[in-house]
């Protein structure tokens, strides 16, 4: 028996929004410790890694580990039927070929359930090594989303240069070029608005804007985003999900010409 309950369906809706642009379907691995998802996008250039810890759920029970392959468009249709403040419970029997979503309104006067067929997905898991990154940038997630959206208008590739003074995002294309520089702030009383940089050595890497835009669909999950970079390894874009876990996106850098 698997059962996981969240008091607010809004959280699950946001999680789904954060992955469904990159993935058509995904396997949710459920165990005693929580729910995990690891999947590459169709072009194998980016990877989504989601962890929802069991202790972050309002109720969590997983007698036997199970993998639930879900079509994310179907899951999205179901979650649209929930109000943001509904309680959502995900249920499955051991060895089941369906999963059930139960939505309960706050006053319990409305209870709905939606059963969805599970899929057998043959997904390859990647071993992600622990890396000491040369640069770790923390900034407001809304600011990052804004920069990526603004710059993507002018080119397909963004160059991210990080030094101890700050981080610079640059794009060039047919129209011309654009640069956005963010200085490290010492805004201790407004930590949520600060830009902080931990740097071992400066890094310059290029990435496809299109993927960064997809990653910023996670913005509603967290006020902060963390970008971790080292030369010639994938960028990690991480959003913490308060008291529940995190979503990390890995993006392979563009090869130097």
């Amino acid at each position: 028996m698997f059962e996981a309950r969240l008091t607010s369906a809004a959280t699950l809706k946001k999680v789904l929004e954060a992955v469904k642009e990159l993935l058509n379907e995904a396997s949710f691995d459920c165990s005693d410790s929580g729910i995990q998802l690891q999947a590459m996008d169709n072009s194998h250039v980016s990877l989504v890694s989601l962890t929802l810890r069991s202790d972050g759920f309002d109720k969590y029970r997983c007698d036997r580990s199970l993998t639930m392959g879900m079509n994310l468009a179907s899951m999205s249709k179901i979650l649209k039927c929930a109000n943001n403040d509904d309680t959502v419970t995900i249920k499955a029997q051991d060895d089941a070929d369906t999963v059930t979503f139960v939505f309960e309104s706050k006053k319990q006067e409305k209870i709905s359930d939606y059963e969805m067929k599970l899929m057998n997905l043959d997904q390859e898991h990647l071993g992600i090594p622990e890396t000491d990154f040369s640069c770790v940038i923390r900034m407001p997630s809304v600011e990052f989303a804004r920069i990526v959206r603004d710059l993507a208008q002018f080119g397909e590739t963004v160059l991210i240069c990080c030094t101890k003074e700050g981080v610079k995002f640059s794009v060039s294309g047919d129209v011309g070029s654009a640069n956005v520089k963010l200085a490290q702030t010492n805004n201790f009383d407004k930590e949520e608005e600060s830009v902080s940089i931990e740097m071992q050595e400066p890094v310059s890497l290029s990435f496809a804007c299109q993927y960064l835009i997809s990653f910023t669909k996670a913005t509603p999950l967290s006020p902060r985003v963390q970008l971790s970079m080292s030369s010639n390894v994938p960028l990690v874009v991480e959003y913490e999900i308060a008291e529940l876990g995190y979503i990390r996106y890995y993006l392979a850098p563009k090869i130097e010409d």
Partner: peptide, 14 residues
């Protein structure tokens, strides 16, 4: 995706 490399180059299969 142009001269984009894939993640396989960096990560091993688990």
């Amino acid at each position: 995706v142009g001269n984009q490399t894939t993640l396989m180059k960096f990560f091993t299969k688990a």
